[in-house]
Design a binder for these strands. Structure first.
Lengths: 169, 169
DNA sequence: GAGAGATACTTTAGGTTTAAAGTAATCCAA
DNA sequence: TTGGATTACTTTAAACCTAAAGTATCTCTC
């Protein structure tokens, strides 16, 4: 469809990256919008913060527990952040934490019975909220978005890897 | 393409919202990934935080300045947050702040000459980073994503409006 | 089995963020 | 024109978050 790629004659002129920037801003807006709404509903409805909910969501998918490092990687947050979150959730009785037998550096955390029950209750409503937010999208829209975002994720991850260290070009 | 819509016989059974939930998680992952990368590059390359950069980006688009409320709405963050950010950016000489003549409650902020120059320098690189992150997407992918995210934004905003107050159903 | 390096986690300092309460200025209706 | 409501911003307390430095433990090589 494109008549002529505007960048065919090498990188002389400063290339136009406006489209990608606008796309990024739109992506960010969508996420911020939804995240903010979820955050405020979690607080109003269950008096829980989003990070706590997210952490519990990770643990709910791991009946045998996770190490703090696992959580940190999955949630894409720093180690120190997880330490604090876990501490508070243990104190409130949602989480159980114990040192691994095999490796005394490792802390294994898991949801307590009560923590799991509370999470399940929240998750059920949460899922409806999310469905509501996306309700104007058709089935094909959802499929397309899934595909395009998967592609985006791969693209971004590649750029992140090559950009932060090796620095090609 | 769908043989039979699984939800044709009314809302008896708990409907399946798994697709939307997965879509939301993927959207969140993409944003977190890119945001984290941008954050770390801004720090390494320019020793500036992402919120500061975002605020300056808003001001760069408003040569006549903005009120704190404007900024707060645009950035979708709380008022108190903006107060602190602005304070630090004024102190470092990037921003200029003065009380409106018409309305003494209002603070108008704008980039200083130095602040604008520094922002432009950062923005130029930032734009390349973003383009890089999306570089595996074709032109059509970008167009499609723009369209679908616009639709998502409208859908989410509608749900947010009806959900937080009116509470239909 | 001793030491170098890696790994898992914690601590620290500083910045960001929110919700909620507080202050000051403006608006508006009786 | 006066008093109540609204608006713009600030302050406060608590949580979140990161990067960087620190501690404890493990692994691996010789």
């Amino acid at each position: 469809m494109t008549i002529l790629d505007s960048e065919t004659k090498a990188g002389e002129t400063p290339e136009d990256h406006g489209d990608e920037l606008r796309l990024w801003l739109r992506l960010l807006t969508c996420t911020t919008l939804i995240e903010g709404e979820v955050r405020s509903r979690l607080r109003e409805r269950f008096d829980v913060t989003l990070p706590r909910f997210d952490l519990m969501a990770q643990l709910d998918k791991a009946p045998d527990g996770m190490t703090l490092s696992d959580v940190s990687k999955r949630m894409m947050v720093s180690n120190g952040n997880v330490t604090g979150l876990v501490e508070r959730l243990c104190e409130s009785g949602h989480l159980d934490r114990r040192t691994s037998d095999q490796d005394r550096r490792v802390q294994v955390i898991r949801l307590t019975r009560a923590g799991r029950a509370e999470f399940r209750k929240m998750a059920a409503e949460h899922e409806i909220w999310i469905a509501d937010m996306f309700s104007d999208l058709g089935e094909k829209d959802v499929r397309d978005l899934m595909r395009l975002l998967a592609k985006t994720k791969l693209s971004a991850r590649k750029a992140a890897r090559s950009g932060s260290n090796g620095n090609v070009r």
